[in-house]
Amino acid sequence: MICRAVLPSETYAQKAQRVLAANGYHSEIIRSTSRGVGCGYSLRTAGDCNAVRELLRREGIPVQNIRDERGMP
């Protein structure tokens, strides 16, 4: 399962990547541009979205949106 988490900044994306790596998750930072927000950062992670969401929440990392690549939250 591939999970996509949208984060507000590159700094948070880098921090999230570190947190996930420390917990055994490999991830990739992808830049994106969306109407109304502009430049943003997604973290593409091989893993369950619920687990990823909880891990990032515990570390105080703000996640704007998180869903698996099929579009399911």
Partner: peptide, 17 residues
């Protein structure tokens, strides 16, 4: 320019951006 939330006319509300 901060490289984030570029479509907004204000600076992003979070650090360090």
């Amino acid at each position: 320019g901060s490289g984030s939330m570029s479509d907004l006319p204000e600076m992003p509300p979070f650090l360090p951006d």
